[in-house]
Design a protein around this nucleic acid. Sequence first.
RNA 1: GGACGGGUGGGUGAGUGGUUAAUACCAACAGACUGUAAAUCUGUCGCCCCUUGGGGCUACGGAGGUUCGAAUCCUCCCCCGUCCA
Length: 379
Amino acid sequence: MPQISFEIVAQCPVTGARAGLLHTAHGVVETPVFMPVGTQATVKGLTGRDLADDLDVRILLANTYHLYVRPGPDLVARMGGLHRFMSWDRAILTDSGGFQVFSLSGLRKISEEGVVFRSHLNGDLHKFTPESTVDTQLALGSDVMMVLDECPEYPVSREYARESMERTVRWARTAYRHYLERIAALPTRHALFPIVQGSVYPELRRECAEQLLELDADGYAIGGLSVGEPRPLSMEAVEAAAPLLPPDRPCYAMGVGMPDELPEYVARGVDMMDCVLPTRNARNGYLFTAAGRVIIKQARYKDDPRPIDESCGCYTCSKYSRAYLRHLYLSGEMLYSVLASRHNVQRYLDIMREIRHAIVLGRLPEHLKAVRAIPVEAG
RNA sequence: GGACGGGUGGGUGAGUGGUUAAUACCAACAGACUGUAAAUCUGUCGCCCCUUGGGGCUACGGAGGUUCGAAUCCUCCCCCGUCCA
């Protein structure tokens, strides 16, 4: 019995891109969707009011590894689960910690049973297994859980990519078996997505996708993207895997991407994405607009009275000038991060709404053509 | 008037004979960031020239001097601070 369901409302006849509705235990999500990243049970700089009432975010992402090492799944469970703990009653997807296998590579050791981590906070040793990460995510109360995977770096040899991919498939089977046992006894609904790996090798991607199909999961993810590889190779990896995944289930491209990449992934069959870029780049002075980037610290914006993006309806753009935001940035004021993050997340959500709208109207090819013409630098 | 202390590149401030166009931090300017060890990190930062690497010029309050060589030592002068008259 499905834990979440996916309803396709429109499909692009040219690309096959879909507009859909993802029904979760915590509400309905319009797809294609961008999920803001709230690693530590918070989207940095944004309140629940910003996210829900203002930006109308329907699903966000949290991280199992980070919440595991602090404050710990037991505490979160005691506080009523992650939704109640962070006061977010909409959907939550949790990453398994698989990405940390990659990003904290100096602090971990991979074996067949799982990964042994050294906590980046205090050096304590922790072991993550396919089963334990399911349990941890269930303790958090995640709506969409991810299997533990290994996200290999780039470049990686074909040999290691295969070895790693095959281990990820074995982990996914183990996790799934455990998951099915656990949810049978639960009244709540939690999906578990396997993750397609295989680095930049299309045949490994295909092989991985085919093997994961046997799990008959509610949705599938494509991982290992944007780990340093040239963008065309990311696209190739998705092109290899996405067509093999079940057409009636959501496809989630993990950890992507830049604004110009989002429609490209959707056009290749992706329904869900997440990325730290809108929030991290906001804090680092890099703002996204419909007309290209604005690096707010640049001297050219010193006395620019315009909003970040004249076509944006967000709170920041309705109230504040580039000159003011630049001043806040250079002064190191925390309000800068708040206002910039709100704008960048708005931009990402708008990008997804525009894509969805284009699919529903049957105009995705025209939309793709238009967005490909957006310059790098805003005026 | 006297006694100390001090004057260094946009700022603060190291450096007390060569390896110093001069540490570091700040500012300024530019860049990176993709399932967040990130409110982080990197580069440039006297002028001119040959587009690697290098060459030339000007620089540590001012003027002289000692020395193969001075931001660094000596002399005088000018400023600033503290203290004593």
